[in-house]
């Protein structure tokens, strides 16, 4: 466990010296801030006109936060994970880590955890938006919805970061890792849902594999075991791929 933490801490600190990480944090926070502004403005407008369609139905939710955040994560996580293992392969520092008293899976989990903590840091900053919204509204925000929306970001970043780390372990070149990861995300996010319309018999399977179908359940405030298992399976798959890739490199 201490080894995982040692690796994770180095990666986490590394993000704060890396321009890419600042750009990612900036893009996410700026976009969310912009949408937050629109949400506040529109609810202020409807309040002025006397509560919109009669009653508290104008209360803004927080699902916009989850859907925007997750979409941006899908696009930016490849840039955060591309160098994690590929760069160690390129510079030869892998030889250092593989001859240190450290298990292969501890290395991979440590790398993943460092990136995960970085995303959680950004997520923690975004808490200001629901806190402000909560104080603006009379009945306050739907607490259950808020939990499921934040859970959607946590689960998605865990799964996609693990896949990114796994792919990064297969490469020596960061750019190759970047585009492979992005390609996989586009596939999971969007393409895999298509066949569901054409193959009725396997429709459930394609829908289950599609990331967005699980996210939309979470945005509606429902937390189901099947959705959680989906994201945790992808996390395990990514971390396993990374560990296997390191092992394969040793034997080559």
């Amino acid at each position: 466990m201490r080894n995982i933490w040692t690796i994770a801490r180095r990666e986490y600190n590394h993000y704060f010296t890396s321009p890419i990480a600042y750009v990612v944090a900036f893009v996410i926070l700026l976009t969310l801030g912009f949408i937050f502004g629109l949400v506040v403005w529109s609810s202020y407008q409807s309040a002025l006109t006397g509560g919109g369609f009669g009653g508290p139905s104008t209360a803004p939710g927080v699902d916009w936060l989850g859907s925007t955040f997750n979409f941006l994560l899908m696009l930016t996580i490849p840039a955060l994970t591309m160098r994690l293992v590929a760069d160690e392969n390129r510079t030869g520092t892998m030889e250092l880590l593989l001859t240190a008293p450290l298990r292969d899976w501890e290395l991979i989990v440590g790398k993943w955890l460092g990136a995960f903590l970085f995303i959680l840091t950004i997520l923690a900053i975004t808490l200001v938006y629901p806190i402000i919204l909560n104080s603006l509204e009379k009945p306050g925000l739907d607490q259950g919805l808020m939990v499921s929306v934040y859970l959607s970001v946590i689960l998605l970043s865990a799964a996609y970061l693990a896949l990114g780390v796994g792919i990064s372990s297969l490469f020596t070149n960061q750019i190759a890792a970047l585009f492979s990861t992005l390609g996989l995300f586009i596939f999971l996010w969007w393409l895999i849902g298509f066949p569901a319309n054409y193959f009725q018999s396997a429709s459930d399977l394609f829908t289950y594999l599609n990331t967005t179908s699980h996210l939309s359940t979470l945005y509606s405030g429902k937390i189901s075991l099947s959705d959680v298992i989906y994201f945790l399976s992808l996390t395990a798959l990514g971390l396993f791929t990374g560990t296997a890739a390191i092992d394969a490199r040793r034997w080559s």
Partner: peptide, 12 residues
């Protein structure tokens, strides 16, 4: 690995 110190040829 706990008992060995190693300096590879390309210093990592």
């Amino acid at each position: 690995r706990k008992r060995v110190g190693y300096l590879p040829e390309t210093v990592p």
